[in-house]
Amino acid sequence: MLARGERLILGLQLTVAMLAAGLLVIAVAWEFVFPERAAVAQLVAGAAAILVAIPVIASAWHSLLHPSLHGVTDLLIAVAVVVLGRVAIC
């Protein structure tokens, strides 16, 4: 039985993910409609990446403090997101 707090976090994560997905759709559509102004699309996609990176990094930090098997996934995804972010910036 999920506790009230766990349900809240799950709902928040879902909201953030859907918001980021919306931003990604906007970014892709913008790049398609205005290919000459691709920087704006990159900016919107970057905002989406930062938005979803927050819960991922937070989960990884929690897993570092409270190690568990599920925490391994959080840590691996956080590493991947950090690497992806660095590649995108460079």
Binding site: L24, A45, G46, A49, V52, P55, I77, L84
Partner: peptide
């Protein structure tokens, strides 16, 4: 940048599911 955003989205949606 697209992958950087898409990967966490897929993982979060998977977790929620």
């Amino acid at each position: 940048m697209l992958t950087a955003a898409l990967l966490p989205i897929v993982m979060i949606l998977g977790h929620v599911l």
